[in-house]
């Protein structure tokens, strides 16, 4: 049995670890409320854009590159964007994103496509860099509270890649791998085909992973808008914003998931540390008891021996 000193020092170090985990958990749970508020605050803007998109779609025979474009050109290059965390201590958050991304990459490879990788979040970047993978673009920092600016940068880069002609290295599709925040306990990794935008009726297949875009309302008469300066120019102005707001939405839900999974992971870690402290304390007590018993036996034994001599 190990010495009491060894047990004591192990208990102490486990206690300080438990304190750290506990603090991390509390920090994460305070961030969740914030992340949720941020997501709620951004909702009206994306709703407004969705509405505007819906009326544009209802009114105009849209033929914008964002909707179909390059599938005809047979361009095998596609972009894949993985949204991971900046910091660890979030359980399986980043590793499940990476697993899904790897799966998607090999699936695309199998379909004869050439995936180009874009990564958001330091953990993901270091994973792919360590394996010497080609990364087209990376963004780091603020994965737990992404601002509008970073969404703007990302959508700018990705749209540029999408809008470029195939001969200049443009891509024909854009996939986003991110974590959806279902609730505090459940976060689901989802693969979303962001571009080209598919206009689908939400009532038919709202569960379809590929269904992005506003529902085309076929019931009711949509208001007859006048477009200023023209329908095409309004479309040109709104579509990039639409993509940007979708990307911002993905970033925000990913941030909420990251915080939630960090809280869960830290909660489990705290529980484990406390269990370990209990076990070690029991062992410490047993070993102290054993040493007392041994001392007593020695004293009694030697006293007996002295008595016999007399």
């Amino acid at each position: 049995m190990a010495s009491q000193l060894a047990f004591k020092s192990r208990i102490e170090s486990t206690q300080s670890l438990a304190k750290i985990f506990n603090a991390q958990e509390m920090i994460a749970s305070s961030h969740i409320a914030k992340a949720r508020n941020v997501a709620l605050a951004a909702k009206p803007y994306s709703d407004a854009i969705d509405d505007a998109m819906m009326s544009l779609v209802a009114h105009t025979k849209i033929s914008h590159p964002i909707f179909e474009k390059k599938e005809k050109e047979n361009n095998p290059r596609v972009a894949v964007m993985a949204i991971t965390a900046d910091r660890g201590m979030a359980g399986a958050y980043t590793s499940s994103i990476i697993r899904e991304t790897e799966g998607l990459l090999s699936r695309l490879d199998g379909e004869g496509k050439i995936p180009e990788l874009y990564v958001f979040g330091r953990r993901g970047v270091s994973y792919f860099k360590y394996r010497n993978r080609d990364i087209e673009g990376t963004w780091e920092g603020n994965s737990d509270h992404p601002g509008v600016e970073i969404a703007e940068q990302i959508s700018q880069t990705l749209l540029d890649a999408y809008m470029k002609p195939a001969s200049k290295g443009g891509v024909s599709e854009l996939y986003i791998v991110f974590t959806e925040f279902v609730n505090m306990v459940v976060q689901k990794v989802r693969i979303l085909r962001m571009l080209p935008v598919q206009l689908v009726d939400h009532s038919e297949d709202s569960d379809d992973v590929n269904s992005v875009g506003p529902a085309v309302a076929d019931s009711g008469v949509p208001p007859l808008y006048t477009f200023e300066p023209s329908a095409e120019e309004v479309l040109d102005a709104i579509l990039p914003r639409y993509v940007q707001s979708r990307i911002h939405e993905c970033l925000l839900t990913a941030a909420a998931s990251e915080t939630a999974s960090r809280q869960n992971a830290m909660h489990t870690a705290t529980d484990n540390a406390n269990d370990l402290i209990d076990q070690l304390t029991r062992k410490l007590n047993a070993s102290r008891q054993a040493s007392i018993t041994q001392e007593l036996t020695e004293i009694i034994g030697s006293a007996d021996a002295l008595n016999k001599e007399e």
Partner: peptide, 15 residues
Amino acid sequence: GFAAFDANKLTIAVE
């Protein structure tokens, strides 16, 4: 940004 007006509802969405 952009603004949409219909049915006496004005929605202004700006960056």
